[in-house]
């Protein structure tokens, strides 16, 4: 990314943050948001400074730059990316954006249609639908991102090790993953969630266990391609250990498929989490969750249709924009491997 873009982004970040953070609260949620925004701002600033200093050092030719340019030319992908960034900001700043306490119950106004006080009406416990949807986005995005990160780490590790060592290690890992893949995932998730209880950590764990094989296969293929290349051989001759070769010399060459797959995977994960919520196994109430809001909302279509529409649309937009962005990335990297 160019230094100028980074500077602009930093400025926008500060502007957004300052404009909403005025209504500072004292809760844990506020503190987390505040900390995360400040950290993000700092990172942006430092990167911008670093980029400015090293400006013009042949960056133009880098793969990253080429990908970025291709991505920019793809309008759908840009739209997806912008929406993803906007959603991430909403998630990050949700305690400041939500007009009301998402947990505050009001028995006098159960499942009311929209009013001035509640723009999208209230839910089955008289809570503000908009505020819950904003918080629900925060939760679902953080859970999915976390789950996808765990999933990527597992998949990459298996793929790297299998591809690098080959032989029986490869056979054992790939056979194991094939068996793992043969377990119908949704049933596995249901069994685990029904039995282990439905805490957030359990949810992350369970969701992150699906589809490890596709990524591992992909990474393994990549590794097989470069395992015998000169720079790897050189490193080995110099006595560099296996783990270090994998992490320092091979891993960087597998970043493209990892980035693409994880972006696409986030949308899928959000849908999986909603599906589990529908079966009563997702994020536990009273914590707001888009999937649970949607499945409750569809029982109240005639009282307050927004109870279903708002979380439904929120899920739709989030999944859609992650998918558009991911598709765009895939085209930009244009590696046949990642299809």
């Amino acid at each position: 990314m160019k230094a100028r873009t980074l500077w602009i982004w930093t400025a926008v970040h500060v502007a957004i943050t300052l404009s909403v953070i005025g209504s500072a609260g004292t809760s844990m949620d506020h503190a987390i948001s505040f900390g995360a925004t400040a950290a993000l701002g700092l990172i942006l600033l430092l990167t911008a400074v670093a980029r400015s200093r090293s400006a013009g050092s042949g960056e133009i030719k880098s793969l990253r730059y080429l990908v970025w340019r291709k991505l920019q030319a793809n309008r759908a992908a840009v739209a997806g990316m912008v929406t993803v960034v906007a959603l991430l900001y909403v998630a990050l700043l949700s305690p400041f954006l939500a007009p009301q306490d998402p947990l505050a119950i009001n028995w006098a106004a159960v499942a009311q249609p929209p009013t001035d006080a509640n723009v999208f009406g209230t839910d089955d416990l008289g809570r503000d639908v908009l505020s819950r949807a904003i918080f629900g986005l925060r939760i679902v995005i953080s859970v999915s991102v976390l789950a996808v990160v765990v999933n990527m780490i597992l998949g990459t590790a298996f793929g790297l090790v299998a591809g690098y060592y080959g032989g029986w290690v490869d056979t054992v890992i790939m056979r194991f993953l094939e068996m793992w893949n043969s377990i119908p995932f949704i049933l596995l998730a249901i069994a685990l969630m029904a039995a282990l209880g439905t805490g957030l950590l359990n949810l992350v764990l369970v969701v992150s266990l699906s589809g490890i094989m596709q990524l591992a296969r992909l990474i393994r293929g990549q590794v097989l391609g470069i395992r015998r290349s000169q720079f790897v051989d050189a490193a080995r001759v110099m006595g560099v250990g296996g783990p270090r070769i994998m992490l320092q010399h091979i891993l960087p060459h597998t970043i493209a498929p990892i980035v693409v797959m994880s972006t696409l995977k986030i949308g899928e994960t959000i849908l999986t989490i909603s599906g589990l919520s529908f079966l009563g196994l997702g994020i536990q109430p009273p914590t707001p969750s888009l999937g649970a809001m949607l499945s409750t909302g569809q029982q109240f279509l005639y009282q307050n249709v927004m109870m279903a529409v708002v979380p439904g649309v929120m899920i739709l937009i989030t999944v859609l924009s992650f998918n558009l962005f991911g598709d765009g990335l895939r085209d930009a990297f244009d590696s046949r491997l990642t299809r």
């Binding site: 529908f278 569809q298 279509l301 899920i315 859609l320």
Partner: peptide, 20 residues
């Protein structure tokens, strides 16, 4: 664009909601 858009749309809505 339309068919790709609709295809993505279809895969982005939870199936239980479409069902209802």
């Amino acid at each position: 664009y339309a068919s790709m858009g609709i295809a993505l749309f279809g895969v982005s809505i939870p199936v239980f909601f479409t069902g209802i």
